[in-house]
Structure formats: C-alpha cells, structure tokens
Design a protein around this nucleic acid. Structure first.
Length: 773
DNA sequence: GCTTGCAGCCTTTTT
DNA sequence: GGCTGCAAGC
C-alpha cells in the first residue's frame, strides 16, 4: 500500500508531491486532483522520514475539507491522525489558544461566538450605550469590526477619517471590552489573538516554528490578509530556519473576495517566499472536452490571471445544452423534464445538480420538483447548531461552563418563561454595569421579588453543574435538557415535535463527539495517540512558566463540555442528515465549489442575476462573477445545461432581464441551443428579439446595461413614456426607462443611463427624446 | 407576557 | 414574495 503511494500520479502531480523542502505554489485547476496531491504530499513526507506527523500542519477552509484530508491520509498511512495539526484556520487557532490561554489573556473556558451571537452582542451593546441605531446599524458595526480584525488592526491602531468613523472605533473598543468581560471570542478574534500571541511571544513562536517544518495550505486563493500573515509568522518567514509552505490554490476559483479573501496573496507568496517551484496541474480528470472548452474560453476573458488551461483525455463528449425559457416557472418545468429524461437514462438523482446564483431562486424550482414528486435536497438551509431550540440548550451548557457569558444568560434566563421580565433584566443590567461585572455575577445584588426569581435561576444552573460533575458528556447533556425544562416546554408546543427531535439529537451529537475526539477513552487521553510522537512536550516561556505544546490532543487541554461547546460553534453541524436519500441536489454556485456531478444545470443566466447587478459596482466585480461561472461549469462531468428566462419574479417584482453576457464568451461549437427561436415581445415599440441572436448585443449602443426592466402598468403614466423605452437625455446620453412612478402629471421615471448611472427624473421637467429602434 | 400586525430587508458563505 | 424584528394591544 505504502509503496504504491506515488503510483497513480501523473507527471505534474508527481512533481508537486515530491518537491524538495522549500516553499512551493501549486496552481491546481478544477478537477486536477488537488486534494490527492495534498494528502499524498503529507504521506510522502512522513513515509520518507523527512518529517514526523507532529511536524506537519495542514490548513483548510472548511471542516468538510479537513475531514476529507484526514480520511484519505489514514487510508494511505498506518498512522493515527488524531492529534495531528490538520484542520481549519479557526480550529487550529482555537487549539493554540486553548493551550496557551493564559498567555493569550483569555479565561480557560473562553467561548466562541458565531456570527449570530456576535450580532446580538453588538445589538445589546449598542442599546445599552444608547447609540442611535439608525446612524450606527449593528450590522455595519459588525462588518467594520470584522474587517479591522481581518487586517490585524485593534481599535487603538485605527485612524478615523471622520466623526462617524471616530465613533465606530470607540464602539469597536467598547465591544472588545465587553467580549473580554464575558470571556467570549468571535471568529476573527480567534485568528487575531493567535497572531498576536505568536507575534509577541518569542519563545512560543520559535517553538512552533521549529515544530512545524511543513505547512500545507489548501484553497490558498481564499486566504485573507490576517491568515496570510499568520502563516508567515508560523513559517518563520522573517526569521532564520523557518519551515516550508506548500500552498495549493486556483486563482480562477477565487470567489470569496467579498468576504475579505485576497487572491493577491498568491502573488505575494510567490514573491515573498521566493518560490522557485510553481507547478501547474492542468490535467483534468472530471469533465469532457466541450465542458472544459467552455470553461477555458470563458475564463480567458479575465485579465490578471496567473494563467492556466485545463485539458482532458476524455474526448469531447456532449455539447453544452442551452435553453431559453419564457419565465422562471417555465424554466423550472424544463429542468424537470430534462432531469426526468436523465433519470430515465439511469443517472442517479444525487448526480443531478441544479445551481443558481442566489438562494431566492430556489423556491420556484423547489415548487416544481415538489409538484412533480421528485425528491430533492437544498443546501444552505439553517444548520443544526443554529436552530433556536438547539441554541437554547447550548446556552444552558455555556452558562454552566462560563457563567459570565451574558449572551447565553439573556437567551435563556427567561426561556422557558419563569417570570423574569424586561424590568428585572434592566435592573440587573444596571447593577452589572455599575460593578463592571457579568449579569450572572450581579444576581446576588438584586433584592425583592426579582432578586429571588433570578436567584433561583442561578441555583438551577449551579445545581445542574454540581449534579453533572462526574457524568460523561452525553449524560450531562441529557440532564440539562431535562432540568432546563426545555423538553417539557416543547412537549406542550403544538409544533414542538421536530424541536424535541433536534434536542434529543444533541445527546447523540455529544456521544459521537466524545468518541471521535477521544474523551473518556480507557487509555489516558493526555498521553496522545500511540503512533504519534509525544505531543505534550513542555515549553518554558519567558516568565519561566512551563506550558504544554499545543499539539496535545484536546482532552488534555479542555474539559469535554468546553470542547463540545467549541465544536458546536466552530462546526455548525453540516448534518444535512438526509443522507441516504437519493435526491436531486439544489444549491448556490458558491456552495457547489469543490463538488462534482454527472449532470449540472446552471440556471438564471441573466444580466443582473448572473453576473449579479451588485457586481457592477465593485472593482473587478464582474471578474469575480466570471470566476463563479467558471466554478459552476467545471462542476459537471458529462452533461451541462444552462438556462435563462425572459421574465422572472424576484423580490415581488417581475423583471425582464437580458441573457447573460457569459453566453458570448463560450465557444460556439461547444454549445447546442435547445429552444426554438422565441419571439420576445417585451413591449411595444421595441424590436422583437431572438434569444440567441447576438447581433443586437454586439451592435447595440450597449444593451447589456439595459437590463432589469421592471414591469409596471405604464399606460397613461407620464406623458406616454413606457417602461423599457430607450430615451436620450442631453447630459446623460442614452438610457432605458426602468420604472415609472407617480400618476399622470407628477410622474417620475427611473432611467438607467448606463455609464452615467441610474437617475430618477421628473418627466414634466426633464427633456427626453425617444430613440427609435 | 404573549399575540398580532406592519415596516423594512433582500448577493454570495464559512468559521 | 416571504422572512425578521419591533411596537402596539390584549
């Protein structure tokens, strides 16, 4: 088995896997065996004795990817992978901070806020500080804070440009204080704290630099600046004797710039680490020729690429089938017809995927599938650990582990109701504020009825904690579910059955967690898995304090409860649970990344939707949309469908979109148009247009901008102007009327002037001319 | 303290 | 169109 390690690799893959111990960049195209190269590289390094399992760190972006890597690795090598540093950025940072919590100035039981928690903490804070939430919306502040953190900036290092920003910075500072008091940490904080810990603590940094000789990074194009800097620190980039970084990525699949990912990190890495070996994996093992040609043609329209062309030995295969529907309903109907015939040809339902740009598009398709009685799964719904009832139960557990978590306190102090109203909480909040302590700690200062009711809540928590001290985690969870009366509460609810089920599922989740992480296994967990070199090596820090090396498995640094709570925040529980059911797959293009299917439908290929209208406003926005389209195309193995529609209901309005510009960027010979030449009588006065006849796109002034025409009954409105009509304005040039509002006489028109932007003009004042077409 | 109704929201997503 | 969050009313 082990000798076969390098057997089935192609030349490029082999070269990448067996590179010398230097930093390297692997440009891995879609379907080129990227994960395979990563895992084989790790196995090869270990097998050839270049490094021990403890000397490897491998970072991914999702838990799923990390799990996949671990599974494949253990099938390649007879080693116990538990305790190896393979995980997500956040997971590994958590591990580091748990081990060195004192040096990171965190309480031992610090808890992790997910985005929901973070937002509600900010809202609560803004309210308490009497901040005008019109002027400083919680979401905007959250965005501001996360953004700053992702650039490695604390409040005291930010320079305000205006009074608003000055206030934002103050609020950022206030937020940090609140988190510190509560002993909670948001996602970005996990990374920033880790970065600061290593940056400030020389011996600790040095220790990890010496330990991790090989750092492997998956999806490198998705790293943000903070992550990149953390990697630089760990690899000892500026210092002597640093380790090697093996970065794998694909600039063409960078689709997360909107959340801070910086593709530029790839070039920066190449430059800063003086990468000698840039290897391209261009052999594709997934798709047939016409599909790959389409992807290659399309992406060639992007400037600023590192450059790469996928090829296949599989032959041309079938052409890409394109369909123009008359409406979104009809588009859905067509998908079903085609899917049925695919199933008739023996394609399993789970091998048929329907992709769309935004979640809102799924509804119509779901309706149609439901009516047709075809089983389907929608990805991207509410995840297990985010469900309200589960969050409630988690909050009880959080309070037992860290009572100063105010968010958890507020969530359940009166749920199920126990007569603690808004007024009591207000008083409690005041007491807490005046002493600068948590709500929980402030309870003893309360008097009267409120005092006694709150007191009994505290007793409930303390009692549960005492009672469960010696119990294994799953038992503990069960006891808490009962003592909190959550189960009773939902038993009485009419619609509570599913919630009860979810709560009981928590006991199972705890059982599974304990098994997987090795809590409560007969052999003392702190000794680590047998095949791993002793990971709990002691490090002596500056202050003479000895700490364990962070490579120690979780059971030696955390209580089962703390660890379980961490797991709940870091791993939203992708328990889509419907596994086993053979169902068609519905998802956004974003969530399809990394997956593949025999047949793929890319739907809603319309200007304004895909590329999305908001992308026009962003720098290089359309390029990112094109990469998104590239990702979508390369999901398909054998058959690819694309569709667009003349008319679509979105946000309660009917929109008439042009077909996507991306169609113009595909190779003609790879495309097969399925729809007949449909006459599209959008509105009188406009030449009817054939769907795929490009001449109008190419010759028109710029019809691409003339999108999204909102249908309104324009008749009788504003001096006979019609929605959709092309007009000319002395200053703004040519534009298309997008909307008309107000009655006759006081009518205004919203007009898209393309380059000059969207304007609202008063029709009785503006001098407009009709442009005959 | 709970239910009801209305205004405002709406790109993509993981941790 | 449909969901969420908040305020008014019972």
């Amino acid at each position: 088995m082990q000798t076969d390690l390098l057997h089935n690799l192609n030349e490029e893959q082999l070269a990448a896997v067996t590179l010398p111990s230097q930093s390297a960049l692997i440009l891995a195209g879609a379907g080129s065996g990227k994960t395979r190269v990563l895992t084989t590289r790790i196995a090869w390094l270990i097998q050839t004795g270049q490094v021990s399992p403890a000397g490897i760190m491998a970072v991914t972006f999702t838990n799923k990817a990390a799990k996949e890597m671990l599974t494949r690795l253990s099938s390649m090598l007879p080693i116990n992978t538990r305790g190896m540093w393979i995980g997500t950025f956040h997971g590994l940072c958590n591990r580091l901070l748990r081990t060195h919590y004192k040096d990171a100035a965190l309480p031992q039981t610090f808890q992790i806020l997910d985005s929901q928690d973070q937002l509600s903490l900010i809202k609560r804070m803004l309210k308490a500080a009497n901040v005008d939430d019109e002027k400083y919306p919680a979401k905007a502040l959250m965005y501001f804070i996360n953004n700053a953190k992702e650039q490695g900036l604390r409040a005291n290092r930010l320079e305000p440009n205006d009074p608003i920003e000055r206030r934002m910075i103050e609020l950022y500072e206030l937020y940090e204080g609140q988190c510190q008091r509560e002993g909670v940490v948001d996602f970005a904080e996990l990374l920033l704290r880790s970065y600061e810990l290593l940056a400030r603590n020389g011996p600790l940094r040095h220790h990890y630099q010496m330990r991790f000789r090989h750092i492997l990074v998956d999806e490198f194009q998705d790293t943000n600046d903070l992550q990149y800097n953390l990697l630089k620190l760990l690899a000892g980039h500026d210092e002597e004797g640093g380790g090697a970084i093996f970065a794998v990525g694909d600039d063409d699949q960078s689709i997360y710039a909107f959340r801070g990912a910086n593709v530029g990190n790839m070039q920066a890495f190449e430059r800063e680490f003086r990468v000698k070996n840039l290897i391209k994996l261009e052999q594709n093992y997934r798709s047939f020729g016409h599909i790959l040609d389409s992807a290659n043609y399309l992406i060639a329209n992007n400037p600023k690429r590192l450059g790469k062309n996928l090829r296949t030995d599989a032959g041309q295969g079938e052409q890409v089938r394109v369909y123009e529907a008359s409406s979104d309903l009809e588009e859905a109907q067509w998908i079903i017809e085609e899917a049925k015939s695919l199933m008739g040809e023996g394609v399993p339902r789970s091998e048929i995927a329907v992709l769309y740009r935004s979640n809102a598009q799924s509804r119509v398709i779901e309706h149609a599938l439901f009516a047709a009685g075809i089983p389907y799964t929608v990805y991207g719904g509410l995840r297990y650990f985010q469900r309200a009832e589960v969050k409630h139960a988690i909050a009880y557990l959080q309070l037992m582990d860290n009572p100063h978590n105010d968010s958890a306190f507020l969530r359940v102090v009166n749920f199920p109701t126990r007569g603690i109203g808004a007024r009591s909480i207000e008083q409690l909040q005041m007491a807490a504020d005046s002493y600068g302590i948590s709500l929980y700690a402030a309870v003893p200062y309360m008097t009267g009825k409120a005092g006694s009711v709150l007191g009994s809540f505290v007793k409930l928590i303390e009692g549960a904690r005492f009672e469960t001290q010696q119990l294994p985690l799953p038992e503990l969870v069960r006891v808490v579910l009962e003592r909190s009366t959550l189960l009773d509460y939902y038993q009485k609810e009419k619609e509570g059955a599913e919630r009860i089920e979810n709560l009981e599922q928590m006991v199972n989740a705890a059982t599974q967690f304990v098994q997987e992480e090795g809590f409560g296994i007969a052999a003392p967990a702190h000794l680590g898995p047998p095949s791993l070199p002793q990971a709990g090596e002691a490090i002596v820090l500056d202050d003479g304090v000895e700490v364990l090396d962070g490579g120690a498995p979780l059971p030696s640094v955390m209580s089962p409860l703390s660890a379980f709570l961490t797991h709940a925040s870091l791993e939203a529980g992708d328990a889509q649970a419907q596994a086993g059911q053979d169902a068609m797959q519905l998802m956004t293009v974003h969530s399809a990344k990394g997956l593949e299917f025999d047949a793929v439908f890319i739907t809603g290929l319309e200007e304004g939707l895909f590329p999305h209208e908001s992308s026009a406003r962003e720098l290089d926005g359309v390029d990112e949309e094109r990469r998104l389209m590239y990702v979508a195309i390369t999901r398909a193995r054998r058959r690819l469908y694309m569709s667009f529609t003349q008319q679509r209901m979105l946000h309660g309005q009917t929109r008439f979109n042009m077909k996507s510009r991306f169609f113009d960027e595909l190779p003609e010979e790879s495309i097969k148009w399925l729809s007949p030449r449909v006459q599209t009588n959008w509105f009188a006065g406009r030449k009817s247009q054939t769907a795929w006849d490009d001449t109008e796109f190419r010759n028109g002034t710029d019809n691409r901008i003339a999108q999204q025409i909102t249908q309104k009954s324009a008749a009788g409105n504003g001096a006979g102007w019609r929605v959709g009509e092309t007009v000319a304005h002395a200053k703004f040039g040519e534009g298309v009327i997008v909307n008309i509002e107000g009655g006759a006489g006081a009518a205004r028109a919203q007009i898209n002037f393309g380059a000059a932007g969207m304007k609202v003009l008063d029709l009785s004042v503006a001098k407009l001319e009709r442009v005959g077409r």
